[in-house]
């Protein structure tokens, strides 16, 4: 459009928010509008699921672990009836549909670390993750790289996250390939005597709950892995 013989008012034209709409976005809009038009779901349902997905995160899972560390009865409940314990930290696994989310199911299991066993989770088939209590999965968790390698070289992968386990500690990899979703309950670290629940919850990061990191006093953010520069960079 180069001519200006049309009659719209340029002072009232809103600048586009993005330079280009991707193919993915075009298809997303087409699919969503068709589904709504055909009654497969409603615009209201779409909004409800989006809002559900926006409010999930790792905080309830961290609170659950912190409470289990200070309350042995709650810890026993968490290991015996994980979905009942989830409710105590504000997560009802039957939300948002009344039968759970369609892709996360309602078979939650908490894997307890011991001095002899360290747990770490993966979904080698795709990216299954306990989203209702842990939020959305990290990007690296969904990569073919992590999925292919963790089941076979767990110690090497963990060492890339900065977690080197002694040989006396068995690695237990849990592949979540069916309806169960898993979360790790790490051991309470040293240097946290007398801490209250909220202090403890701060050091239980998402990465600790997946099993690629251990909680540590003073560390309240996820692992940052430094990538090596390419040996033969492409100019």
């Amino acid at each position: 459009m180069s001519g200006h013989d049309h009659d719209h008012d340029h002072t009232r034209t809103v600048a586009p928010m993005v330079d280009e709409i991707t193919d993915f976005e075009v298809l997303e809009i087409a699919l969503r509008e068709l589904c709504i038009e055909k009654g497969i779901f409603t615009a209201e349902e779409h909004r409800r699921f989006t809002e559900f997905a926006e409010q999930i995160g790792p905080t309830p899972a961290a609170n659950l672990v912190a409470r289990a560390w200070v309350d042995p009865d709650f810890k026993a409940l968490a290991l015996r009836e994980p979905m009942t314990a989830s409710k105590e930290v504000g997560v009802d696994w039957l939300e948002p549909t009344g039968f759970g989310t369609p892709s996360d199911f309602t078979a939650f299991s908490i894997l307890e670390d011991t001095p002899d066993v360290h747990n770490v989770i993966v979904c080698a088939l795709c990216s299954c993750y306990p989203r209702p209590i842990l939020g959305n999965s990290p990007e690296w968790y969904r990569t073919p790289n992590y999925r292919r390698r963790l089941v076979r070289w767990p110690r090497q992968v963990l060492s890339e996250f900065g977690l080197v386990l002694p040989e006396g500690v068995a690695v237990r990899v849990q592949d979540s390939n069916q309806k169960h979703r898993f979360m790790v309950m790490p051991m309470r670290p040293e240097g946290t005597d007398g801490w209250d629940e909220s202090q403890l919850a701060e050091i239980v990061t998402r990465d600790c709950l997946i099993g690629v990191a251990l909680p540590k006093a003073g560390v309240t953010t996820n692992v940052i892995t430094y990538t090596r520069p390419a040996i033969h960079p492409i100019p």
């Binding site: 767990p154 068995a170 690695v171 237990r172 990899v173 849990q174 592949d175 979540s176 069916q178 169960h180």
Partner: peptide, 14 residues
């Protein structure tokens, strides 16, 4: 497999 003998993997199977 290069890790110690007690390393395990768990998965669900019908």
């Amino acid at each position: 497999y290069t890790g110690p003998d007690n390393d395990v993997l768990r998965t669900e199977i019908p």
